[in-house]
Nucleic acid binder design. Structure first.
Length: 749
RNA sequence: GCCGGGAUGGCGGAAUUGGUAGACGCACACGACUCAAAAUCGUGCGGAGUAAUCCAUGAGAGUUCAAUUCUCUCUCCCGGCACCA
C-alpha cells in the first residue's frame, strides 16, 4: 500500500545531505539533517578508542556491577529480545556512571551447546570455527547498538583458558563429595541423543526439540544440589528478586515438612500426621492399582489395614508409600470409593510427632551433570582399573577437547569422544597403569554457573578470580534476564556460588543482589518469533533503516519492560520522529548567562525527577514519554537556553547515546556527555498559587486558583462564591464540604 | 486442580498512600506548504448530543463525599506447577 510508511524512502534521502534553514524567531541557525548512519559508527569507534566504558579494578568511586545474561551465539544472529534486555541495563549502567559510580557492565559468550554441535555435524565443519563466526557476528551486532559494555573483559565459555576453571570447580565438587557417579534412570531424548536434566524436560518432552522423553538407565555424573536445597530456599528472603521468581524457585525446590511413620515394615511419609487415626489403608507406588494381599498395623488405631499398590503414588517422592486417609484427602477418597475401602469420617486428632519423626522432603533432585556429546567441557577425571576415579591434577588442566572428524554420538548414546583412542587411552596419573579418560562432557549450564565471577578478574591464570577483586565487585548489584532461566541457570548459579562461598573462594553467599526480568518480544500479531514462521525481526535491518538510537528508544518505549509485547514496525517511526525533533531543537539554543532553566520551568524540573525515578523502576516507557513531553514544551518556545538544552540531552543520553553525544559536542562539550554529571532537579516547585479542582456530588465541576498557603476555610469560601458552582448548588446550602489540602474540594448537596 | 499476573479508545499503553480516566506514541481525519505527492508543521480524535449535559476502565454488587485504584461474586486471557501425600 502506498500509504504505508516506508523507511526506505527516508534512507534514500540521506546522501542528498541538503541543509535547511530554520526560520525561527530569536535565532536562526543552520542545522544538518539528522543522520544516524553518519554519527553512530563514528561515536562507537571513538568510545572504544577512548575506553570510557572500561571498569577499573581499583577506584575511589563506589562500584556498581550491572549484569545481563551473556548470549548463546547461535547462527541466527542477535534477536531483538537481546536488544531489549541489554539496552535496559545499558541505560542503568550509563546513569550510574553519570552518578559517579565505577561501573562494571561486561559481556561474553555462552558458546557450548547442542545447536552448534548439530550444525557442525550437518555441515561437516568444526564447532570451533562455527562458534568463532557466530561470536564475530554477535560482537559486531552488539557494537552497532552502542551498548556500553566493557569489551576488554570479554569471555567465552569455550575458550580453554576459561573452561580450565569450569573443570577446576568440578574437581572441587568431586573433592568435597558433591560430584558423584550413579546409575540412574535418566531422561533420554532419542532425537538429540542426549540425557536431560529434570529442568530440561517440559511436559515429558525435550525442551529443545519437543521429542517425547524416554527413560534410560545410565551411569551419570551427578551434582548434589539437594544438599543446598534448604539454603537455596531460605536465602531467597535475603535477595531482591521479583516475587514470581521467588515463588517459582520455591515451588521447584518443593520443600515440605512432614514425618516418617512406620506401619510395621512399611515406612510412609506424610505432611498430615494429625490425620493418622483416619488412615484405613496404605498405598505403595506401583504400575497398576492392585491389592498386595498384605495387611499392616496402623500404629495409632492398632487396626490391621490393607496394603495396596497404586499408580497415583510416586516412587521418587517421600518414601514411595503413603497412608490413605480418605476422609481428609481427595485422591485417597477417590481411591477408597473405587476399590470399596473403608472410610472413617470422625476420628481423633494426633500430635505432629506422636507416631513418627520429623523430616523435610524436597521435590528437587540432584543435577544430572554429564552429557554424552562433544561440544562441552570434558569432565576432568581418569578411570583406572586399580585406582578407580582419579581426578586430573590442577597442573594438567584444562583437559582440552580434541579435534575430531565425526561428532555423531554412538547409537547407544556413547560420547563421540569415546571413539578417539588418543584421547581415551592414557596412563593412570596415580599408578601409571593403563587407564581410560572420562568421555562425558558437562551440560551447557556449567559455564554459565560461574561466569559472573570471571568478569571480575577475567585474565587471572592462577585462580578463577582473585579474592581481592571478588571482594571489590561482588555481589552483582543488578542482574536482568529472562523468566525462562528461573529454575535453570538462576538456581544453578546460586548453587555454585554458595558452594564456592563455603570453600571461602568467593566473598558473598548470594551472587545477585537484585534480579529483574524482561518480557518477551513477540512477532507482529502476537506469535512467538521463530525462524520456521519467518517472522523474526533482525536488529541489523532496523539499525540500518532507523539507526541504533531509534531502535533502543523504540524497544524501551513499546510497553512495560517486564511484560511480553508484540513488535510493531509502524510504531518505530514515533521514536524516530522524536529524535529528529530533538535534533532540530538544537538549532534554537541560545547562550545565556543563567545557571538554570528560564523557560518551561515546571515541565523541566518534573522531567529531571521523573526520568531519574523511572529508570530505577525500569519504567522506561514513561520516562521516554516524559522526555517527549519536555521536548514538545521546548519546541513551543522561541529559544532554549543552551544550559537547559544540555541538561535535557543528559537525561536522554542513557537511552540514545549517539545523538546526545553528537549534539553535546556541537554545544561545545569538552568531555563525553556520558562522563558528565547526572542532572538534579534545581528545586522543588513551590508556586504561590495552586489549582484546586471542585467536585459537586462526586462530579468534577470546575477549578479554582488559590494561594498555596490558603486555609481550608478560604478554599471553601472561594469555591462556594464562584458563579458556576452556585449554579450547581441551586441556592441550597451544602450538606457537607470536604477539603483535601492542595488537591480537591468536594461539595455534597 | 493449585499458585501467580492480567482485562482501560481503532492499536501499544498512562493514571493506585482513592481525588478532573485516556498522558505519551501509532493509526486516522481536516488544514497549511507543494504543480502534485512524500516529508514537515498546525488542529481534531472514547461513545451519544447542535449544545447544556449524559454515559463509559471485562460483568455484577458493596464501601466512600469521591473507585481504573479498596472488598465480595462471576467471566475470559496469560504464565508457572501439576497425582509431591
Amino acid at each position: 500500500m502506498a500509504k504505508e510508511y516506508d523507511p526506505k524512502n527516508i534512507e534514500g534521502k540521506w546522501p542528498a545531505r541538503h541543509r535547511y534553514a530554520q526560520a525561527l524567531a530569536g535565532g536562526q541557525k543552520e542545522v544538518d539533517e539528522y543522520n544516524p548512519q553518519k554519527i553512530e559508527k563514528r561515536w562507537q569507534d571513538h568510545w572504544e578508542k577512548s575506553g570510557i566504558y572500561q571498569a577499573e579494578d581499583d577506584s575511589k568511586k563506589p562500584k556498581y556491577y550491572a549484569l545481563v545474561e551473556f548470549p548463546y551465539p547461535s547462527g541466527d544472529g542477535l534477536h531483538v529480545g537481546h536488544v531489549r534486555s541489554y539496552t535496559a541495563m545499558d541505560i542503568v549502567s550509563r546513569k550510574r556512571r553519570m552518578e559517579g559510580f565505577n561501573v562494571l557492565y561486561p559481556i561474553g559468550w555462552d558458546a557450548f551447546g547442542l545447536p552448534t554441535e548439530n550444525y557442525a555435524i550437518k555441515t561437516g565443519r568444526q564447532p570451533r570455527e562455527i562458534t568463532k563466526e557466530n561470536t564475530d557476528t554477535f560482537r559486531q551486532q552488539l557494537k552497532s547498538l552502542g551498548l556500553s559494555f566493557d569489551w576488554s573483559r570479554e569471555i567465552n565459555t569455550t575458550d580453554p583458558k576459561y573452561y580450565k576453571w569450569t573443570q577446576w570447580i568440578f574437581l572441587k565438587f568431586l573433592e568435597k563429595g558433591l560430584a558423584y557417579k550413579a546409575k540412574i534412570p535418566i531422561n533420554w531424548c532419542p532425537k538429540d541423543k542426549i540425557g536431560l536434566a529434570n529442568e530440561e524436560v517440559v511436559d515429558g518432552h525435550c525442551e529443545r526439540c519437543g521429542t517425547p522423553v524416554e527413560q534410560k538407565e545410565k551411569e551419570q555424573w551427578m551434582l548434589a544440589i539437594t544438599k543446598y536445597a534448604d539454603r537455596l530456599y531460605d536465602d531467597l528472603d535475603t535477595v531482591d528478586y521479583p516475587n514470581r521468581v521467588k515463588i517459582q524457585q520455591k515451588n521447584w525446590i518443593g520443600r515440605s515438612e512432614g514425618v516418617l511413620i512406620k506401619f510395621d515394615d512399611i515406612e510412609i511419609f506424610t505432611t498430615r500426621p494429625d490425620t493418622i487415626f483416619g488412615a484405613t489403608f496404605v498405598v505403595i507406588a506401583g504400575k497398576e492399582d492392585k491389592f498386595t494381599g498384605r495387611f499392616v498395623t496402623n500404629p495409632a488405631t492398632k487396626e490391621k489395614i490393607p496394603v495396596w499398590e497404586a499408580e497415583y503414588v510416586m516412587s521418587d517422592y517421600g518414601t514411595g508409600a503413603i497412608m490413605g486417609v480418605p476422609a481428609d484427602d481427595e485422591r485417597d477418597m477417590v481411591f477408597a470409593k473405587k476399590y470399596d475401602l473403608p472410610i472413617v469420617g470422625e476420628y481423633k486428632k494426633a500430635g505432629f510427632e506422636d507416631f513418627g519423626r520429623k523430616v523435610t522432603k524436597y521435590k528437587l533432585r540432584d543435577w544430572v551433570f554429564s552429557r554424552q556429546r562433544y561440544w562441552g567441557e570434558p569432565i576432568p577425571v581418569i578411570h583406572c582399573g586399580k585406582c578407580g576415579v582419579v581426578p586430573v591434577p590442577e597442573k594438567d588442566l584444562p583437559v582440552e577437547l580434541p579435534k575430531v572428524e565425526k561428532y555423531e554420538p554412538g547409537p547407544d548414546g556413547e560420547s563421540p569422544l569415546a571413539n578417539i583412542p588418543e584421547f581415551v587411552n592414557t596412563p593412570c596419573l596415580r599408578c601409571g597403569g593403563p587407564a581410560r579418560r572420562e568421555t562425558d562432557v558437562m551440560p551447557n549450564w556449567a559455564g554459565s554457573s560461574w561466569y559472573f565471577l570471571r568478569y571480575c578478574d577475567h585474565e587471572n591464570e592462577k585462580e578463577f578470580a582473585s579474592m581481592q577483586n571478588l571482594k571489590y565487585w561482588m555481589q552483582v548489584d543488578w542482574y536482568n534476564g529472562g523468566m525462562e532461566h528461573t529454575v535453570l541457570h538462576l538456581l544453578y548459579s546460586r548453587f555454585w556460588n554458595k558452594f564456592l562461598y563455603d570453600l571461602k573462594l568467593v566473598s558473598t553467599s548470594e551472587p545477585y543482589k537484585k534480579r529483574t526480568s524482561h518480557g518477551l518480544i513477540l512477532a507482529e500479531g502476537g506469535e512467538k518469533m521463530s525462524k520456521s514462521k519467518g517472522n523474526v525481526v533482525n536488529p541489523d535491518t532496523i539499525v540500518k533503516q532507523f539507526g541504533a538510537d531509534t531502535l533502543r528508544l523504540y524497544e524501551m518505549f513499546m510497553g512495560p519492560f517486564e511484560q511480553a509485547i508484540a513488535w510493531s514496525e509502524d510504531a518505530l517511526v514515533g521514536p524516530r520522529r522524536f529524535l529528529e525533533r530533538v535534533w532540530k531543537l538544537s538549532g534554537k539554543t541560545k547562550e545565556l548567562f543563567t545557571p538554570y532553566a528560564m523557560i518551561c520551568q515546571d515541565v523541566f524540573e518534573k522531567t529531571v525527577e521523573k526520568v531519574s525515578d523511572d529508570i530505577e523502576k525500569m519504567a522506561f516507557n514513561t520516562a521516554i514519554s516524559q522526555l517527549m513531553i519536555c521536548s514538545n514544551a521546548l519546541a513551543k518556545e522561541d529559544f532554549i537556553p543552551t544550559n537547559d538544552f544540555k541538561r535535557f540531552l543528559q537525561l536522554l543520553a542513557p537511552f540514545a547515546p549517539h545523538i546526545t553525544e553528537e549534539l553535546w559536542q556541537l554545544m561545545g562539550g569538552k568531555d563525553s556527555i556520558h562522563n558528565s554529571k547526572w542532572p538534579k532537579a534545581n528545586w522543588v516547585s513551590n508556586p504561590m498559587f495552586i489549582d484546586i479542582s471542585v467536585q459537586i456530588n462526586g462530579k468534577y465541576r470546575g477549578v479554582i486558583m488559590v494561594k498555596n498557603i490558603a486555609t481550608e476555610e478560604e478554599v471553601k469560601n472561594t469555591a462556594l462564591s464562584l458563579p458556576e458552582i452556585q449554579k450547581w448548588l441551586n441556592g441550597k446550602e451544602p450538606k457537607k464540604v470536604i477539603v483535601v489540602p492542595r488537591k480537591i474540594i468536594s461539595i455534597v448537596t
